[in-house]
Amino acid sequence: MTLAKIPTKIHELFIEHGLVIKVEKGCQLFQEGERAEDIFLIQSGIIQLSKETENGKELTLRICSTNGMIGEGSPFCNLHYHVATAKALEHTTLLALQYRSFELLLTEHPALMLDYLNWLQIENMKNQSRLRDLMLHGKKGALFSTLIRLANTYGEMREDGAIFINFALTNTEIANLCATSREMINRMLNDLKKHNIISFDKSYITILDFHYLKDEINCENCPISICRID
């Protein structure tokens, strides 16, 4: 269920002009509040973007993998600091472009500028749809929509119609994606397992009844390009 995440021509800009950066598992690429100077394209690996609340709770905003772009909010604006913390969940290789260089390259190629703006609008729609689910359907909606987004991003369809989410997540990490507590996630996941909606083996979840999750939150059947976790 994976999709290309950025236009091919913009990907080529990073290949031609980007600087290779490697980040070890568990290390930070940048921290919330730090000065922002570069925009990044993930060549391999996985980067988690998160924010920390005043009481120290972590909220995961995105989990980005190969061909994902991060730090994309600052070009063409006066935002010169990172609004989230980026941490490698596994050994990750990225290409970095300075914001000023990226801006100049897009300005010189109007067709690429339109591609970038179109891609950025899709990213905004992702954020809006996730916020809508959190606000309208509470904790249950947050979990169900997160499972749907994980399936659309990392899901592998099985012959029996089940969807295996090929991405390991602890209950704490799922709670951070849902802006709720681990105890609440534990109860809801166990209840879904009891009713044969999902199964789980260690940190891997298989969705047995995908339509149930969608029906429970009145899913609007957004395009998969929008209903994603990356």
Score class of each variant (00 low, 15 high):
226 I>Q: 05
23 V>G: 08
53 T>I: 02
47 I>N: 08
203 S>F: 08
33 G>S: 08
151 A>C: 12
194 K>Y: 06
63 I>H: 04
133 D>L: 15
124 N>T: 14
29 L>W: 11
134 L>E: 05
99 Y>P: 05
43 Q>G: 04
169 L>N: 07
163 I>H: 08
3 L>M: 03
28 Q>G: 00
6 I>L: 14
143 L>T: 04
110 P>V: 09
19 L>I: 14
45 G>A: 10
115 D>L: 09
152 N>A: 05
33 G>A: 02
156 E>L: 10
120 L>S: 12
39 I>E: 07
15 I>L: 13
32 E>D: 08
5 K>Q: 10
4 A>H: 04
166 N>S: 15
132 R>N: 07
49 L>F: 14
157 M>F: 00
155 G>S: 05
27 C>P: 01
178 C>E: 11
98 Q>A: 10
180 T>C: 00
100 R>L: 02
198 I>C: 15
168 A>T: 03
172 T>L: 14
34 E>P: 02
72 E>M: 01
82 H>T: 04
167 F>L: 02
15 I>R: 12
21 I>R: 12
139 K>C: 00
130 R>P: 00
120 L>C: 00
111 A>F: 00
144 F>L: 12
193 K>E: 15
169 L>V: 09
213 L>S: 10
1 M>D: 00
80 H>L: 01
207 I>N: 06
86 A>Q: 11
205 I>N: 15
80 H>R: 12
104 L>N: 14
100 R>M: 08
57 K>L: 04
97 L>Q: 04
55 N>D: 12
147 L>V: 02
42 I>Y: 10
81 Y>E: 11
126 K>S: 06
83 V>P: 03
72 E>A: 11
29 L>R: 15
197 I>A: 02
215 D>P: 01
133 D>V: 04
112 L>I: 09
65 S>V: 06
158 R>M: 10
117 L>H: 04
210 F>D: 08
147 L>A: 07
88 A>N: 11
208 L>W: 06
166 N>Y: 01
20 V>N: 10
68 G>Q: 15
128 Q>S: 02
17 H>K: 14
155 G>Q: 05
147 L>N: 13
151 A>M: 06
122 I>R: 15
8 T>N: 13
61 L>H: 05
205 I>M: 12
230 D>C: 00
151 A>E: 12
204 Y>L: 07
7 P>C: 04
59 L>E: 14
130 R>G: 01
135 M>K: 12
108 E>C: 03
193 K>W: 00
132 R>C: 00
148 I>A: 02
203 S>M: 08
101 S>Y: 06
29 L>Y: 11
136 L>M: 13
174 I>W: 03
169 L>A: 07
195 H>R: 15
4 A>P: 07
25 K>T: 01
103 E>S: 05
22 K>R: 14
142 A>S: 14
214 K>R: 15
226 I>S: 06
84 A>T: 07
135 M>I: 10
16 E>L: 05
137 H>K: 06
117 L>Y: 10
213 L>F: 10
194 K>F: 09
50 S>P: 05
181 S>G: 01
120 L>P: 02
127 N>I: 07
116 Y>N: 09
93 T>C: 02
208 L>M: 10
107 T>F: 03
229 I>F: 13
124 N>Q: 15
104 L>W: 04
126 K>W: 03
186 N>G: 00
163 I>N: 11
185 I>E: 07
23 V>E: 06
78 N>Q: 09
181 S>H: 09
230 D>N: 13
190 N>D: 05
184 M>S: 13
179 A>V: 03
187 R>W: 05
61 L>C: 07
